[in-house]
């Protein structure tokens, strides 16, 4: 990586989580998925989130993405406290639309829209003009090397192409944060590395903070910093930060 890590002392973290807890259900059947998570991600940083199945990785992403409401703790995004025992002055839907991009294990593109409009969709939902949104979508598709498929139906794309389109969609409204849940799971190692490369490039280019949940041994060595979740708690680790590409 050529870009230096931002100075943690002077930069406001993109994501700052402390003591985050999440309990599913109540009574005898309650599950404590998160039991006090602490985590910090700087703008432009790509971190890995690893841990055994059922350890709470997806739950953490859902809490950060305002998809699921946590039970206790604190979340601050770009220095603004958004959760503090309850959502603070905010519409979770608007937060997701304006400040967060999601990438999932499966691309989950909208089959009835073509590639360009899938990427443009978050912008259109935010009220941008069709023309402006499509213009931006084509730029992103070009950046991700899928612009030649811009007019295609999503069903005609390969798995790797679909995943790149999904990443373009996550980037569309230039969110300060991207949350990716096992984005490389369906891809071969070459394509998986390509996706990580793209995410890193985007992080540098747009100062996006990116959390990548993964089991994928091929990509784990690429992270400079990792969080390990075990039994609902996070443990920070230094990663290998191996060069790739």
């Amino acid at each position: 990586m050529s870009a230096a890590l931002p100075n943690q002392a002077t930069t406001t973290p993109a994501i700052e989580v402390s003591g985050l807890r999440k309990r599913y259900g109540a009574g005898d059947t309650a599950v404590d998925a998160l039991k006090g998570v602490d985590l910090t991600v700087q703008p432009g940083e790509v971190i890995g989130l690893i841990g055994p199945s059922g350890s709470g990785k997806s739950t953490l992403l859902k809490c950060l993405g305002a998809v699921t409401e946590p039970t206790a703790g604190r979340i601050a995004l770009s220095g603004e406290t958004v959760y503090d025992g309850g959502w603070r002055n905010l519409d979770p839907r608007a937060l997701r639309r304006d400040r967060i991009g999601f990438v999932f294990q499966a691309p989950y593109l909208i089959p009835f829209l073509d590639v360009t409009d899938n990427v443009a969709l978050p912008l259109l939902l935010a009220g941008r003009s069709n023309r402006g949104a499509r213009q931006r979508a084509r730029e992103l598709l070009a950046a991700l090397d899928v612009e030649h498929r811009a007019q295609a139906a999503v069903a005609q794309l390969s798995g790797g192409e679909q995943q790149r389109v999904a990443i373009a969609r996550a980037l569309a409204n230039q969110p300060p944060i991207i949350l990716a849940d096992e984005p490389t799971a369906p891809l071969d190692s070459e394509r998986a590395l390509a996706v990580v490369r793209i995410l890193n490039r985007m992080a540098q280019q747009y100062q996006t903070a990116i959390i990548v949940v993964t089991h994928d041994e091929k990509i784990i060595p690429t992270f400079k910093r990792l969080y390990h979740i075990r039994d609902g708690r996070t443990y920070e680790e230094a990663g290998e930060g191996r060069e790739f590409g």
Partner: peptide, 16 residues
């Protein structure tokens, strides 16, 4: 339903 969940996730309003 899955497309609808995705739409909601990326911030589509109920009205939409």
């Amino acid at each position: 339903l899955r497309e609808i969940a995705v739409l909601k996730l990326i911030g589509a309003r109920n009205r939409t």
